[in-house]
Computed example of a mutant assay.
Amino acid sequence: MIGVVGAGAFGSALAAVEAAAGREVRLWGRRPPEPPAGVEAVGDLAALAGAEAILLVVPAQATGPFLSAYGAALPDGPLVLCAKGVDARSFRLQTEIAAAALPDRPLAVLTGPGFAAEIARGLPTALTLACADPELGPALQHALSTPRLRLYLTDDVVGAQLGGAIKNVVAIGCGLIEGAGLGQSARAALMTRGFAEMTRLATALGGRPETIAGLSGLGDLALTCGSAMSRNFALGRALGAGLPMPEGTVEGVATARAACELGARHGVELPIAAAVADVLDRRATLAEAMEALLARPLKEE
């Protein structure tokens, strides 16, 4: 049995694809949700007892509060963290938050390029499963992979999380460029230099460059930096065009600020993340932020 905690779009999509593969799936929400076909909705976390894996699919900024409130009620078993973001209060990764709240709990991370709507429809998707435990990782890979959801395994938990988190910030920046009509050349430049920032920060924190070059970094970046299905890109595009911001959780907003703090703590320059944060917090207009980026000293690539 697979347990899914969090009945939003992504949690419901993961529940649906696992159920379509013939697995027993139980989906928990604070209010029992209307489940996808083949999924059992439950209102008590105890109903997830005995699960091969429990997927925690709540927003990144809600992980800490959720585990504080409900962590003691979570049945034993591997916990797979599915949110992409750095905590804006503690500047910790999702696994760091979970390890502090649930010591000795087996942990893994599910991340990479996958839109909830496409996963729910059964469209082919490949994601990254990151797990430091050499026995648990392969077991979870086989337990969660389906004919329509292919999971690639890595033990680089830090790199996988930072790729998924920082690409949201870059996607907001690309949306700003799109909304303001600054052109595809500018968007390509921002994506490429944003990828360099992702790599610098991840390696400074102990991640590996090849992880950032994989699905959890480059793959997710390619998906989210040009599609209106990306909430981060859509928010940036609306801001760039002077339109009202779309509703819903946009993970890159809080992560932009947190990434800048992480960069400062580790001596890593993140000019694009800083520019996005400045625009979001209205410390600079988009025009001022772009001018500052273009005026940076010339350097080798």
Rank of each mutant, 00 (worst) to 15 (best):
L243M: 08
I119H: 04
R296F: 02
P124G: 08
G242I: 00
R89I: 06
T146W: 10
A100V: 03
V4H: 12
G50A: 03
L298D: 10
L81K: 11
L144D: 08
S227L: 08
A258V: 04
L262F: 13
A241T: 01
A222V: 07
A277W: 08
L162I: 10
A16H: 04
P244H: 01
A21F: 02
L56D: 08
L48S: 01
A41H: 02
R296M: 01
A108K: 14
E269M: 11
L218Q: 13
A69P: 06
R121M: 05
S216W: 04
R23Q: 15
G179P: 09
G114T: 03
G263A: 14
A258Y: 14
I172A: 09
A73Q: 15
A16F: 10
E34M: 05
P147I: 11
H266K: 04
E288G: 06
N232S: 09
L56T: 03
E34I: 04
R193V: 11
V158R: 13
P106D: 11
P138Y: 02
G263D: 07
A264M: 05
P106N: 06
L136R: 10
E96D: 15
R121W: 06
D87W: 13
L280N: 11
L221S: 14
L79P: 15
C131K: 08
A37G: 12
F115A: 07
P124E: 13
A165N: 03
F195Q: 12
G112M: 02
L27K: 05
T111C: 13
G3R: 07
A165D: 01
R187C: 03
R208G: 14
T224L: 01
A46F: 02
L201H: 15
Q141E: 11
G217I: 01
S230M: 03
L144K: 06
V253Y: 05
R121S: 09
G50C: 04
G29V: 00
P33T: 01
A132R: 14
P138F: 01
L129C: 12
G112Q: 05
T285G: 15
A19M: 05
V157A: 13
G179I: 00
G3F: 02
T199M: 15
A264Y: 05
G219M: 05
A126V: 01
P32R: 12
C174Q: 06
I212G: 15
F66E: 07
R23H: 15
Y152D: 09
P75V: 03
L176S: 07
H266L: 09
E52Q: 05
P138V: 07
G173E: 03
E197W: 08
V17I: 12
A165I: 00
P124W: 06
C174A: 12
A273F: 08
E34L: 07
G248T: 02
V276T: 14
N168Y: 00
A295P: 00
P138I: 02
R150E: 12
V169L: 04
R200S: 14
R26T: 00
A143N: 15
